[in-house]
Amino acid sequence: MTNKFDKLPEISLNGIVIICGNYGSGKTETSVNLAFNRKQAGLDVAIADLDLVNPYFRTREARDALRDCGINVVLPEAKYMQADLPILAREVSGAIRNPPDLLILDAGGDDVGVTVLAALGDAFAGRKITMIQVINPFRPFTDSVKGCLKIMEEIEYTSKLKITGLVSNSNLMELTSPDDIYRGYELIQEVSMQSGREVKFITADVKFLPLLDMSRFEVPVLPIQRRLLPPWKSSCQLSKIKN
């Protein structure tokens, strides 16, 4: 397993990275795992929760674990944490103006969820931004190339930003199989071919790493440890993640 893992190309993201995609595509799991992964690689990482449209299962749920690992988490004030209000922390625009090695902006779902990005236009001006669309082929509306391209167009229109990268997050929760991850990779390659956007990486639950034929992928694989779980399942031991 270790040997296979070593052969994988490294994820080479830095600067400002916006994670967007349709509702429930796995933006937050991807963002949080990307933050841990890049922190482990020695980068100075910050993550900001821009999900103003959905009050459940957001980055803020994983905030303590992120902070314990030395990742700067930019969130609205604690007293507004459970408010059903579109509050954007004022620190976000500051972080965009003075980003660490890697600043991850975890946006909300669909075109509605990226409306906030247009409001940050001044802060983004003149900066190089990587905007990534996360795609899970098991979600409604993104099980086809056509559906993915439609969401891409809607997100770009609303955010006034261009999507520059793609991530396949093929996930059917406990029913996911390695074949599903291959299937997601095939779909995202097709989306990449038709849209001209680069596949930045794909994700795979850590438990699949020994089972996957890594030679089938030409892009990095981000191992995912699920951190946003319902209350009857225990989250992975976050304290065991090494810095």
Partner: peptide
């Protein structure tokens, strides 16, 4: 085949 859905979406589709 199975799809991954939020309860709210699934109620709508159902």
């Amino acid at each position: 085949a199975k799809v991954l859905m939020k309860g709210n979406e699934a109620i709508g589709e159902a």
